[in-house]
Amino acid sequence: MFDVILEEYASSNRFTERDSRLKFTLGFGALLLVSISMSPLAPIFVAISMALIVILLAGIPARVYLSLLLLPSPFLVLSIVAILLITGGGNALTAIHLGPYTLHLSTGAIVIAINTAARILGGMSALLFVALTTPMVELFSLLKSLRLPQEFIDLSMLVYRCTFLMLAEAIAIQNAQTMRQGYSNFRNSIRSISLLGSGLFIRGWNRGEELLLAMDSRCYDGRFEMPLKGKRMGRVEISLVFAYLVICGFLALAPYIWGSG
């Protein structure tokens, strides 16, 4: 079902113990700069540097990192082809006639395609940095500092907890079904997956009711507080993150400043 669950790596790498605010600032800051960048410069810089940071400094296996980066490639390839064919501008290189439309391959389209591909690569790298180095639990302290409603944070935490319980159950059910030839042909697969879905829903619901009972017996009043505290940040760490973001920002905004690219 899941080839890789990132949480496993997120909670056991060399960055796990670092302050989450710094990691979020670095990851999401780079992400933001990549997505407003007009040239492929900043995204490519982020893609390369994040790969080095994650693999060399955080100690995530390179194989895992690359397979994650390549995960959405079918969608990427299809979409880049579409962008190449439909968008335009610049000099036309070749034209393809398709029904009522003429599709041009032009220099403008190539520029857009390169920008998009670079942005995806840079964006995915920044996203993977956060996903691979930051345990999900730390996300809650971020949500809290964003002043999101308490109900929403409670709900997110409980969804997180239930997800793992349900996943374990789903995997167990699916293994049992596979052993009994549940996925031997298309018809069986449809039946098995529906049984799995409904079984999960009903079991999950029962669990939810049990959870409520357990919480009630511990004086649950609809709120659920959790002590969340940040770790100490070193000056060096802060300045490194800041310097990194300044470089990214410079690369992202350079074409605006000099009006080229």
């Binding site: 709900l155 969804v159 239930c162 959870l211």
Partner: peptide, 14 residues
């Protein structure tokens, strides 16, 4: 909230 949490987890797993 607990029941909606189950629902959210269910959507994720599904």
């Amino acid at each position: 909230i607990p029941l909606l949490a189950v629902a959210g987890a269910f959507i994720f797993v599904l």
